[in-house]
């Protein structure tokens, strides 16, 4: 069984998109997918952020407006919906980083329902060490 691990550190939509695309492609191919959301990456999974996030990487800031416009026009599925699809399709687990979770005083109910559990760095590394593909986004 092929396994992919994605550590999601970034919380900007332009970086969350490849997380969604790669996770859904991997799930469709039958890979096990493990996602560890940490720092700004975990912020993006907050209920009050997930849907209305319009942040974009600083270096491409001037292109943000155009990107969102195109995505809307062409009906590109959001990163959140791509992850939902991925979870429906295959074995996809999304973990919240315990350190970020505690540091920002988050509660499990603050996060969107696709987040499975809160895990520590040690536990995640143990899961990720068997992955065939490891990404940090």
């Amino acid at each position: 069984m092929t396994k992919i691990s994605i550590i999601v550190f970034s919380g900007t939509v332009d970086k969350l998109m490849p997380v969604g695309v790669l996770a859904s492609a991997a799930a469709a191919l039958g890979y096990d997918v493990e996602i560890f959301a940490t720092f700004w990456g975990l912020m993006a999974f907050r209920k009050d952020m997930a849907e209305k996030n319009t942040k974009i990487s600083k270096e491409f800031e001037e292109m943000g407006e155009m990107m969102f416009k195109i995505m809307k026009e062409k009906n590109v599925p959001s990163w959140l919906n791509l992850l939902r699809q991925a979870k429906e399709m295959g074995n996809v687990k999304i973990y919240a980083c315990a350190q970020t979770f505690d540091m920002f005083g988050m509660k499990k109910e603050d996060l969107v329902d696709i987040v499975d559990e809160v895990v520590g760095a040690g536990e995640y590394l143990e899961k990720a060490k068997e992955a065939d593909i490891s990404l940090f986004i």
Binding site: V21, S24, A25, A28, K74
Partner: peptide
């Protein structure tokens, strides 16, 4: 048609 990568592949697999 109109669905973006990896949409068509996912639909086929389904």
């Amino acid at each position: 048609r109109g669905s973006f990568c990896p949409g068509p592949l996912m639909e086929l697999i389904k």
